[in-house]
Design a binder for these strands. Sequence first.
DNA 1: GCCTGTGAAGCTATTCACAGCT
DNA 2: AGCTGTGAATAGCTTCACAGGC
Lengths: 226, 226
Amino acid sequence: MIPERTVERLSIYRRLLGALLAEGTQSVFSHELAAMAGGTPAQVRRDIMSIGYTGTPTRGYDVSGLIARIGQFLDAPEGQGVALAGVGHLGQAIMAYFAGRRPHLAIVAAFDKDPQKVDRVIHGCPCYPVERMEEIVREQRIRVAIIAVPAPAAQATANTLVRAGVRGLLNFAPARLHVPVDTYVQDADIAVFLEKVAFFARHGTRVPGLVSEPVGNPSEQSEDRQ
Amino acid sequence: MIPERTVERLSIYRRLLGALLAEGTQSVFSHELAAMAGGTPAQVRRDIMSIGYTGTPTRGYDVSGLIARIGQFLDAPEGQGVALAGVGHLGQAIMAYFAGRRPHLAIVAAFDKDPQKVDRVIHGCPCYPVERMEEIVREQRIRVAIIAVPAPAAQATANTLVRAGVRGLLNFAPARLHVPVDTYVQDADIAVFLEKVAFFARHGTRVPGLVSEPVGNPSEQSEDRQ
DNA sequence: GCCTGTGAAGCTATTCACAGCT
DNA sequence: AGCTGTGAATAGCTTCACAGGC
């Protein structure tokens, strides 16, 4: 099984590769991708190796070929619909972000308990009352959901979603969710993030890949870097 | 230096301990905290050991004492002000969340380039035009900032903040930031999170600590678990 | 010369397992 | 009996460093 961190980085590589493609770049070296992503060339090579793609010493990796390979690896062939629980500011920010782009991972239904917010379409996404969540998620075979409800409602929301068939949750509520072992939870707990940033802003700690000011200068030597 | 993951967990433990305190619980065992946080008892004990707090075999850890110790460790003694760049839906969700609570880590200034959004107070936080960001962040000696602007503006925003003295960034924009090595960046990239969740919803993978349905049942045996 | 692919080494984080305490 | 504190073992991830290719 592939490391979680590698999956994250592949997603990042794909986005960067898309930008390269848009500007007409046809191939890229591991050290270039590493500089853009903020990692090491060795890491990039190993990540790409882990999904069975290969480059050539002369040109590096083919941009569109690598994008396609990452897609085969990360995306569900049939596409995946996503449910969104909670249409507050956060939920709307998320809808706005995903509107239009990402055909294969689109938010296809949103839910809120406020009657004012439902029964309309926001950013191309229909909003329903929470009462219909279980029914709709089950019928549409939705397996991925975003929890953007207040903390006190998070566990109940998760329970309903799991009951309806969801197996992956992105949880923005500041609460720990208890779910079955076959359900994956990614926490995005803003309060935790902010306390961590505040701590390290005072105590310092930085990742590898170094990267200096604005665009990382290509201060490579012979064998990778240090 | 303390592991990054430990800092995250300490923040989580503190929140859980606060809830225990509110309901009048005076002491807690590592396995109880582990069940609440979704980790292992050994992990909890080591995290607590790493900040130099000790419990007793008979009662476990003293709830208020441990909260205080985590506070000494995580928080700046004088408190830390936080700047927020971007007052869109996401920025407003963040302001709403931090309004009131967290005296020692409050959002003290928000910035937006839209003249409609600025020169007023939202959730107790004054909003200024971006042009004044560098000046205000520098004058208020703000060291921590949240980036909630669109991706194309993220790097320029980060540059300005760093120039003004910020040393910790929480970045919600789907873009990799290039900053000086002494500046800490925590990425909260929603698109990456969602792709990761979608991937593992299909392929499965779960953390330790197991945890079953709703509230984790206390199926402990003698020596820890597993 | 400069690249990729990769075994091996090195690190970091987590878990085991038990001595010591009550 | 059941807990904490912790050295030792393990697991997981990252980086090194070099063979092989153009």
